[in-house]
């Protein structure tokens, strides 16, 4: 049974565009068109505002948390073409670095797995993707993939650092996987890899007939296969699978929805996909015993409940 446990009144003055929980589920960062990023402490069922980060000059589209080993670090991207990296020291949040090398709105930002260091990727409406990284002594550097998607790049997502069939280097240690996936206004989903310190296109996945709104690489769950989910203006969610033997990806349409689908994300174990779309629904999808992706439910036939008031769960 799904139920609403709590509500957080963010007191944002405009629409919320993104909310992300930190690695340990103790803090929630939200960003909004009111140009603010708010950080809430959500431990123990309480919600308290701990910080208001002001710095963007336009709506903030996405936030992302870095791995806690780097400290409390958030990256945000917005309409003002900037990516701002914030860090918490002794209770106060300050700007650590501002990256403003894009020509138009930066739509998406994502931190890479911690095995790659303090690295993030961001995609912009100018069609390019930047990989921004910390060089270790307090300064930052970036590499740009120009023309990643014509018209604009809407979403970026990193591959998990460890894959069961990852390459072994000379010392026998596993090399972390350095790949990322992006989706853009050219209806394409593209995979990128780093080769000789440059980022090159690894794969081009065609399947959508309209702008790709969001992409998400599933966490690795011990199988040699890799899975990417993408959603699009064409109301479809596609699951791309690479079974790990050859470098080719097969696609399967998860579902055709009634309206645009603009956001999806994987659970931490990568077995459930949450899809959000214009039909005002958030649906959860899971692979069943037969390997089919089905929407999951808790309905007792004959006891179908529809409660009014707080929440309604219809069957």
């Amino acid at each position: 049974m799904v139920s609403v446990i709590n509500s957080i009144d963010t007191a944002h003055e405009d629409m919320i565009h993104d909310a992300q929980l930190d690695y340990y589920g103790t803090k929630l960062a939200t960003c909004s068109s009111d140009r603010l990023i708010k950080v809430f402490d959500v431990k123990g069922g309480q919600q308290t505002l701990v910080a208001n980060l002001a710095g963007h000059e336009g709506p903030v589209w996405q936030v992302a948390w870095a791995h806690p080993m780097f400290g409390n670090i958030i990256a945000s991207c917005g309409y003002d073409r900037k990516v701002i990296i914030w860090k918490e020291t002794n209770g106060t949040w300050d700007k650590l670095y501002v990256y403003s090398n894009h020509d138009s709105s930066v739509n998406s930002v994502a931190f890479a797995p911690h095995e790659l260091g303090l690295v993030l990727a961001c995609g912009s409406s100018d069609g390019s993707i930047s990989i921004v990284f910390s060089t270790g002594d307090g300064s930052w550097d970036a590499k740009k993939i120009n023309g990643a998607h014509s018209i604009g790049c809407n979403a970026v997502s990193w591959a998990p650092a460890v894959a069961p069939n990852a390459l072994l280097d000379q010392s026998g240690k596993q090399q972390p996987v350095k790949k990322l996936v992006s989706g853009g206004c050219d209806n394409l989903v593209k995979i990128w890899r780093e080769e000789d310190s440059q980022w090159v296109e690894d794969q081009k996945l065609e399947g959508h007939s309209d702008w790709v709104r969001d992409v998400s690489w599933a966490p690795s769950i011990g199988l040699p296969k890799s899975i990417i989910a993408s959603c699009s203006q064409d109301c479809r969610v596609i699951i791309w699978t690479n079974d790990g033997t050859f470098n080719n990806w097969t696609s399967k349409v998860l579902h055709k929805f009634n309206d645009v689908v603009w956001h999806l994300s994987w659970s931490i174990t990568g077995n459930i996909l949450a899809v959000s779309g214009g039909d005002n629904k958030v649906s959860l999808w899971k692979e069943n015993l037969e390997g089919q992706w089905v929407c999951i439910s808790d309905v007792n036939k004959g006891q179908g409940q529809i409660t009014d008031g707080q929440s309604a769960i219809s069957s």
Binding site: M15, D18, A19, W262, S265, A274, S276, K281
Partner: peptide, 16 residues
């Protein structure tokens, strides 16, 4: 519209 982000385990944060 509606959007969701994952919490810990079987938990979601949902917002318009």
């Amino acid at each position: 519209g509606l959007q969701a982000t994952w919490g810990m385990g079987n938990q979601l944060y949902v917002f318009p």
